[in-house]
Design a binder for these strands. Structure first.
Lengths: 327, 327
DNA sequence: CTGTTAGCGCCTTCAC
DNA sequence: GTGAAGGCGCTAACAG
């Protein structure tokens, strides 16, 4: 018997809808007999509360909206897993909305969140998507992930600078003197911060060559090929992300240079592939970021407002065989 | 001005709520002037329709529930991407619910979907999770992905048998005579079907050794080590999935056997890593599966019921360097 | 302890 | 072309 409503239950249990509601929500002040009759009736009817109606009258949906760009698989799934873990542990659902390039579509998707979710977790790493902030229903509590611009809600930031600095120190400690950095695409905040941090932490006696990449593997490969053709010498490459580092490894292999003896190679992110290739990198624990984002949002929703508006997640240096030889 | 309601708009535009509703939903029979006034008022108030209330009165949420087990990252993200692409293209949101081991939790999560979504996409590859079918609010249209048991809704199945058969033919054509198959965990339907298909399509003059694995990389590695210790000879290994195949490659490397000369190696799934390792495998295009699932569900929801109740997705053989030498 | 009633915000007949 | 009124399913005062 599908679609049974609270009134059906009330009729069958021969009580009022109010009693049914109270019994089903474990409120006090319900006679045990009444409660039993209600429970029985509900079970017999296969009654399932209508969550939509419930939210409407409670003004509470127990759902959080997740707005993500169309990003790389690894990140996406890890982030969502972290969000989901925390959310479901605290009784919340996730309403997903990937934002593609299409502006109108995005606007509509965002507006449609109003009245379906209690708050939003938004990730928008590209400076170009600035508008997103303005599209958000301003009434919804929001946690931003990695969004540079100031806003009124909570913001979780990955400390790209700290990660890049750690890498700079690592390479410096290894005695590398002519280092190439391949950047991410223009306008990408992560890319910019990684470059800034790296440059800032590099001792003055080390040469830094910066070349433009776009976070894809081919761009890493092409960058090295170009340097090779130009006869540029270097003994280390810090790629703006792991994918490009993979391209770098490939290019170096083709030109017959030994890693790490001739050239040390490292990336950023620690995607699963990095482990297989023994790539030295900076680990960004996206599962933790997701869990933290959900936790902060739910805290805010439930009134227990913890911590600072800006929270930084520090990534971790993972040293593997592309920068140091095992011994 | 957040939280403006339709009544606020009506008041400001000096019309009735009915007219506001009509104007905002582009219904006919609204005087241009009225429409303009309504639009202006809505914009001034920053009015955003309350999706929850809208669903309640329309009995239509334009959201689809996605119920997944806690599965491997690659699959998860690809499947969800496919679902999201199709869903958002047709104006639907995704409500996520990962089902963990905890039965009660799962039940509650599923029941909470009633009234929040118009239909469900469910993936439950393990025979052990049989109960899931019974937990589903029976009133919701459902598309099952890879669920063996019959049910009343639509079911999308990955044709594991066909994939395994293709692999059997491939190895046979290469002239391999003593083949090892490493299975997935007991009770896993995919694993069982892959074994069955493989065995069925293998010519009689080929020896088949079946060993138990569990879909993890170490289990693939361990399986080969065991065979090696036992002195079992073989010239090909078909791992039940790519992860185990990676373990196999590692183990063979350690025992000094050449791939593919001494031993041909292949897997199943075509995870991204498989491409990097040049692993011959069977590609299961999960993005397509997700998109198809969403498409079928939405078709059903919107009355244009296409196709058969059971739809099979045929995976594709991808031949790479672990079974054939480049030339 | 229990029932009645009035909304939550929106859409939709049904009259005008 | 427009407004008034009822209802989607549920919860939350308020009386009894």
């Amino acid at each position: 018997m599908a679609g049974a409503t609270i009134r059906d239950v009330a009729r069958r249990a021969e009580v009022s809808v109010a009693s049914v509601s109270r019994a089903l929500n474990n409120l006090a002040n319900v006679h045990p007999d009444t409660r039993a009759r209600v429970l029985a009736a509900a079970k017999e009817l296969g009654y399932v509360p209508h969550a939509g109606a419930r939210s409407l009258s409670l003004a509470r949906t127990h759902a959080i909206g997740v707005v993500l760009p169309d990003l790389h698989g690894e990140f996406f799934s890890e982030l969502v897993r972290g969000l989901d873990r925390e959310a479901s542990a605290r009784g919340y659902h996730l309403l997903l909305s990937n934002i593609h390039a299409d502006h109108d579509h995005a606007t509509k998707a965002l507006r449609t969140m109003h009245g379906r979710v209690d708050g939003l977790v938004v990730m928008a790493p590209y400076a170009g998507s600035v508008a997103i902030e303005d599209l958000l229903p301003p009434t919804l509590p929001t946690v931003m992930i990695n969004t540079p611009r100031a806003h009124d809600g909570v913001s979780l930031r990955i400390d790209n600078r700290a990660g890049a600095e750690a890498m700079a120190r690592h390479l410096a400690a290894l005695g590398r003197k002519r280092i190439v950095h391949i950047t991410g695409p223009d306008g990408n905040t992560d890319a910019q911060e990684r470059l800034d941090g790296f440059r800032a932490a590099l001792p003055k006696d080390i040469d830094l060559v910066v070349v433009l990449g776009d976070f894809t593997e081919p761009s890493g490969e092409a960058a090295i090929a170009r340097l090779h053709d130009d006869g540029v010498a270097f003994d280390a490459v810090f790629a703006g992300n792991d994918l490009m580092a993979v391209g770098v490894l490939r290019a170096l292999h083709q030109t017959g240079r030994a890693v790490p003896q001739d050239v040390a190679v490292c990336g950023f992110d620690d995607v699963p592939l990095a482990g297989y290739l023994s790539l030295t990198t900076i680990r960004v624990h996206m599962t933790a970021v997701g869990a933290r984002a959900a936790a902060r949002l739910i805290d805010a929703l439930e009134g227990c407002d913890t911590g600072a508006a800006d929270e930084w997640i520090t990534p971790e240096l993972v040293v593997r065989a592309t920068t140091v030889t095992e011994s």
